[in-house]
Amino acid sequence: MRDRFVIPIGELYNKAALKRVNKSWRQYKFNLKKDYYKPTEKTLEEMCSATPPHGISSQNWIKLLKYWDSEKGKSLSTCGKAARASLNQLHRCGSNSFANKQADHEHEHGEKMSLLALWIKAHTGKDGSVLPGTMTEDFVDDAKAKVEQLRLINPSKSQQELEDEAFELTMHGGEIPDRPTGYGLGVRKSDIYGVHALLRKDGPRRIKQRTVVMDSNVKEEMSALHKKNEVLEKENEKLKDQVQENNILLKTLIGQFSQIVGGVNDGKGSTEILNCAKSVLGVTNQHVMNATGEQGKSTKDGN
């Protein structure tokens, strides 16, 4: 296929190409059977003895004719005809895909085509008529009536949104189908009703806005944490200084008490030593009271 057509590399493109080939192969087999298999006009022996179509060997052609003429082949053919006859809406866009019709409309009018508008475009002729014996006209009338009902409920919605919703409700009755209708070849249920569809409806703009809001919140939280860390660092420095001062005072107190105890023990206790110890205790007490008050104030401000 890539020798004759330009197909991008990738699993997604491989699957799409194989789906398109499968559809063409089925159409090719249908044309073969329609043109060469004539059980009402010829016997099986006469068809097998005739010259096979171009590109098919005699051996393979005889096998195919016998398969068509077998009970299994006839049973599957009957089921296929019944399924085809049960279709009550037939498109009239020929080989032009739904996706191409949507793209042509968007290129010409500068806006996206709704599902209902696409359905009408694909199932009506150039004069706007529908195929006789089909339910296309009734379906379109029901969908348009549903659009007007939805407009009364949701007047803020655009025409395209109303027509898309009305098409879904009329086509599927409000239920999620196993195979989406009206989207063309290769479209899966998850593409329309899954997570990817919700992301597409929200659009990259909303996702970007949400990311920006999240980034802004994170920045604010980080800034607040930095400020708290700065305050804690300052408080830690103050605590270190206080601890050092307390150690000095403690050493001084220990020295004074050691002198007092030593003097009393030696019988040399004097008023001068006691006054000096009293002075040291007073300074220490005042320092402790000041430190306690500043710590309480700092705690109150932090709260």
Rank of each mutant, 00 (worst) to 15 (best):
N60R: 08
E245C: 05
Q242H: 05
E161F: 00
T181Y: 05
G269H: 11
C79K: 14
A117N: 11
E45Q: 01
P8S: 01
T181W: 04
A103C: 06
R84P: 09
P177H: 03
E221P: 05
H91I: 09
I260L: 15
G184V: 01
S158C: 03
L131Q: 11
S156V: 06
L150P: 11
K238S: 09
A83Q: 08
N247F: 03
G296L: 05
N154H: 10
K33Y: 13
M289S: 12
R84L: 13
Q149E: 04
S270D: 07
E230L: 12
S70T: 02
L185A: 10
S75W: 12
K219E: 07
S129E: 07
N88T: 15
E272L: 10
K34W: 10
I153T: 14
T252M: 03
N229I: 11
S75M: 09
K38W: 00
D141E: 13
N285F: 07
N229R: 12
V288G: 01
V283K: 09
N96W: 06
H287I: 02
A103M: 07
T252W: 02
I9W: 08
S279D: 14
T284W: 03
A50M: 01
D241Y: 09
E41S: 07
P204C: 12
S258F: 14
H105N: 10
H226S: 13
Q160I: 13
N246F: 13
A277S: 13
F98D: 06
N22F: 02
G293V: 11
D164G: 00
A16E: 10
H91K: 14
Q242R: 07
K234Q: 14
N285V: 12
L162K: 02
A166F: 03
K38C: 00
K278P: 00
Y67D: 12
C79Q: 15
E45M: 01
M171I: 00
K300H: 08
E175I: 00
H109Q: 06
K72P: 11
I120G: 02
N100D: 15
C48I: 13
W68M: 14
T271R: 10
A83K: 13
Q244I: 07
K38H: 03
K238P: 04
A145N: 12
E175L: 01
G133A: 08
V231K: 06
G255N: 15
Y193L: 02
G128L: 14
C48A: 11
R92Q: 15
R2W: 10
G10R: 08
E137L: 08
K29G: 12
K121I: 02
L131Y: 04
K240C: 02
A166L: 06
K238T: 14
Q102D: 06
T78M: 06
H109D: 02
K23R: 14
D215Y: 00
K278I: 07
E175V: 00
L198M: 15
E111Q: 03
P53L: 01
T136C: 06
L32S: 05
K33S: 07
K219Q: 06
C93Q: 05
V6E: 04
T51R: 03
V288N: 06
K157N: 07
V130S: 04
L118F: 02
K227N: 14
M1F: 08
